[in-house]
């Protein structure tokens, strides 16, 4: 996933391997990355809202088992990137290869979009749980409608997913009866239910009270450890450093820098990256989570 670099645009797996091999010391997880197959490859996404260019030629490669963190200041286009690759926003240009299928992102039809979405899960910043459904129904509704799964089977899976996120005892509660952290955990269970190839997280903890962030990150850590492929737009530097194996830093609709996360945090190459890390590092330092070495 050498987004942005000319080398990568030519992009074969071998090249990618060579490149990240060139980055010096590697964590185990980044080795896993090199050996894996590309699950998702996006090339040259462009997106403009009215006059404003939000994405200006972004490339992204996600391998099976990757946990990719996308960082960047607000307005850098990271959320739009995530929304475009799940077709919540329509990109103006770009191609996507998902699990071997090539799609023109600007002109994908309904069928292609539904096909891709059936292999992805999405977790929103504001949870977006169906407010007229209980926690369990939130998880099972997609299975019963989109997958035409019988109710008892769907509920069996639903309860299993709720157990995974520690919400089984709240199965019959409506979203309004749950805390933000609990709602987000149910939302993660909902994203997991369909056994997706990859789950996209759009700032999953940004809307939470500080004391509720931990429980959500904990769930995400355990998902990462279980080998689920994740792409996470986040402001949680500790999470990005400790859990992700690859980091992308974006600004103004472009990728400024990316690399294996250890490398990225230990030796950021770009001055802009260093400034950014210093800023957020200062902010989180009092908690003992400062990240700049």
């Amino acid at each position: 996933m050498r987004a942005g670099s000319p080398l990568q645009r030519a992009g074969s797996g071998a090249e990618a391997k060579f490149q990240s091999g060139a980055c010096g010391e590697k964590a185990d997880i980044s080795q896993r990355r090199e050996q894996a197959m590309a699950l998702l490859e996006v090339k040259n996404i462009h997106k403009t809202f009215d006059e404003l260019t939000v994405l200006n030629g972004v490339d992204l490669t996600v391998n099976k088992g990757d946990v990719v963190a996308i960082l960047g200041p607000s307005g850098s286009g990271k959320t739009t990137l995530l929304r475009c690759i799940n077709f919540l926003e329509r990109a103006d240009g770009g191609t996507m290869v998902f699990d071997g299928r090539t799609v023109d992102m600007a002109h994908a039809d309904k069928k292609e979009i539904r096909e891709i979405r059936s292999h992805t899960g999405f977790v929103f910043q504001n949870y977006n749980l169906f407010s007229n459904k209980t926690a369990l129904q939130n998880v099972t509704l997609g299975l019963q409608t989109a997958r035409k799964m019988p109710r008892d089977k769907a509920e069996e899976i639903g309860m299993e997913m709720l157990r995974k996120v520690g919400m089984a005892d709240r199965a019959d509660h409506y979203p309004s009866q749950l805390s933000g952290g609990q709602q987000q955990r149910v939302a993660i269970a909902r994203a997991l239910a369909d056994d997706p190839e990859v789950i996209y997280f759009d700032e999953p903890t940004s809307a939470l009270d500080p004391e509720l962030i931990g429980e959500v990150l904990e769930v995400m850590r355990s998902l990462a450890a279980s080998g689920i492929t994740m792409v996470v737009v986040t402001h949680e530097m500790t999470f990005a450093r400790d859990v992700s194996n690859h980091v992308i830093f974006m600004e103004k609709g472009k990728i400024v820098e990316e690399g294996p996360s250890k490398e990225f945090f230990a030796h950021p190459r770009e001055e802009r990256t260093r400034t950014f890390l210093r800023m957020v590092g200062n902010r989180t330092a009092p908690n003992g989570t400062g990240i700049v070495s």
């Binding site: 919540l88 899960g121 169906f130 509704l141 409608t145």
Partner: peptide, 23 residues
């Protein structure tokens, strides 16, 4: 009805009519 409700529905694979009817 907040737009996020529809987006969540389409992300779990529901069709437009299913989203309308159930959510």
């Amino acid at each position: 009805v907040p737009k996020g409700q529809l987006e969540a529905g389409s992300c779990v694979g529901m069709s437009y009519m299913q989203i309308m009817w159930h959510i």
